[in-house]
Design a protein around this nucleic acid. Structure first.
Length: 426
RNA sequence: GGAGGGGUGGCUGAGUCCGGCUGAAAGCGCAUGACUCGAAAUCAUGUUUGCCCUUACGGGCAACGGGGGUUCAAAUCCCUCCCCCUCCGCCA
């Protein structure tokens, strides 16, 4: 949610920012009009309430003295009616205003490229080069099925299309990746590990910005009004919802969780295999920081995610998203993409964003500055990283002509020393 | 799921039966000052949050789990929802 005062005082700046990301500025106009009307009504109704409070106090005293106050009560009743009517108007306006505010996206940071779509994104840096093959590289689906570690046919029978099913060493590999990533973030990067619920209430979904706009993207349990989380960002950011954080910032949290996405409308080659699935494992990083430090924190957040890929020896590049491509709640965002030879393409495995105080306002997460005044924190999050696509890259990059796959070295301790996946002899 | 108890400021905890000057006693904690070479102890003062008006000084409104109602007036009465605790039931 944007700061209404910022909208009042820097309207043109906010408007331009929203236009740059292709947002509906009509909502902004609506909010401005409602805000003006709201303050008008408040001034009026608060004056009346002041009068009521004063007179009520006097009536209490008069009544104790035994005087007849019925005539004055009658007058006051009329005053009460006027107040009630005005209060109703104020409440209506406030709820309309909130509804509109919740649908206005964040203002992009001035440093990011301006453009309507992802063709305006900027490659910031690349690590490694795409591997050259002396044979035709296979896709992870072919490799995984040949190794007997991936069984998408049975997954479809159990659940439908778009669900992963790892078997044997595949399941172990998935688990190894989760452990490895959590260990690196906790031991090397200073994060505290959290293991959150995967079902959350609507308030939490609203807090991070998934609701109201993205309702159709999520699985919803109607009988209990709970949502399956699309990312651990949701429960972990809501860790401090409705709180004034009383411990020193920054606070870094990391969490493994399952993530659930309906992916309604997604179709095409991406839907084959593990690249776009309804359920997947992900390790997420979330930061709560002071406003002054959030952009430096964004850079180190991206480095934390890159570190995982470096250690695994994978080729990746970092993309700075343009105004038209950043997500609803973000003001600046870097994506990290892995090279996947079987796809002959780059795969997004991480998205690292600074939300500034956009989520903190929705979720009401504050800290105290040096003077003790409550202020909204800045929140950030980044995937650190998403598992199935990581498996895709590991399989497709590590594949050998004989169908075996050489595993990244850091995984060995988590794989009981195993360094290579070999197809079963049939 | 059933029965009972409870949700008050950073914490503990009064007030709720019998509505009125209670944004809220008291204690703890915290901050500042005094005393002290310094510290402890002691004393004094201060110590919730949001919103509105105001250049400022300052003034006002709201909030005692959330929402609604009764009343001139609600932490206090009524309705409803949520959460926590205890016991019973069920259960990985």
């Amino acid at each position: 949610m944007l700061d209404i005062r910022r909208i009042r005082e820097k309207e043109s700046e906010v408007r331009q920012g929203l236009l740059n990301r292709g947002a509906d500025v009509g909502l902004l106009d609506r909010v401005i009009a409602l805000d003006r009307k709201r303050r008008e009504l408040l001034t009026e109704v608060e004056t009346l309430k002041n009068e009521r409070n004063r007179t009520s106090r006097e009536l209490g005293i008069l009544k104790q003295k035994g005087e007849d106050i019925s005539e004055k009560q009658r007058v006051m009743r009329e005053l009460g009616d006027r107040i009630a009517a005005l209060d109703r108007d104020v409440r209506t306006i406030e709820s309309e205003m909130r509804d509109a505010m919740l649908l206005i996206p964040n203002v992009p940071h001035p440093s990011i490229p301006i453009g309507p779509d992802k063709s305006f994104n900027k490659v910031v840096r690349q690590s490694g080069e795409p591997r050259k093959f002396d044979f035709q590289p296979r896709t992870h689906v072919e490799i995984g099925e040949r190794l007997g570690i991936l069984d998408l046919r049975r997954a479809a029978r159990m659940s439908g299309s778009g669900f992963p099913l790892f078997v044997g060493l595949g399941a172990k590999l998935e688990r190894a990746l989760i452990q490895f990533m959590l260990d690196v973030h906790v031991r090397e990067h200073g994060y505290i590990e959290v293991w959150p619920p995967v079902l959350v209430n609507p308030a939490s979904m609203t807090g991070t910005g998934q609701l109201p706009k993205l309702a159709s993207e999520m699985y919803h349990i109607q009988s209990d009004d709970l949502y399956l989380i699309p990312t651990a960002e949701v429960p972990v950011t809501n860790y401090f919802r409705e709180e004034i954080i009383e411990r020193p910032l920054p606070i870094y949290l990391t969490a493994y969780s399952l993530c659930f996405r309906r992916e309604a409308g997604a179709a095409g080659k991406e839907t084959r295999g593990l690249i776009r699935v309804h359920q997947f494992d992900k390790v997420e990083m979330v930061k709560f920081v002071t406003p002054e430090t959030s952009y430096a924190e964004l850079e180190s957040l991206v480095r934390n995610a890159e570190d995982i890929l470096c250690r695994l020896g994978l080729t990746y590049r970092v993309i700075e998203l343009c105004t038209g491509d950043i997500s609803f709640s973000a003001s600046k965002c870097y994506d990290i993409e892995l090279w996947a030879p079987g796809q002959n393409d780059w795969l997004e495995v991480s998205s690292c964003s600074n939300f500034e105080d956009f989520q903190a306002r929705r979720a009401n997460i504050r800290f105290r500055d040096e003077s003790g005044k409550p202020r909204f924190v800045h929140t950030l999050n980044g995937s650190g990283v998403a598992c199935p696509r990581l498996v895709v890259a590991i399989l497709e990059n590590g594949q050998q002509a004989d169908g075996s796959v050489i595993l990244p070295e850091p995984l060995a301790p988590y794989m009981d020393g195993l360094t290579r996946l070999v197809p079963p002899v049939t």
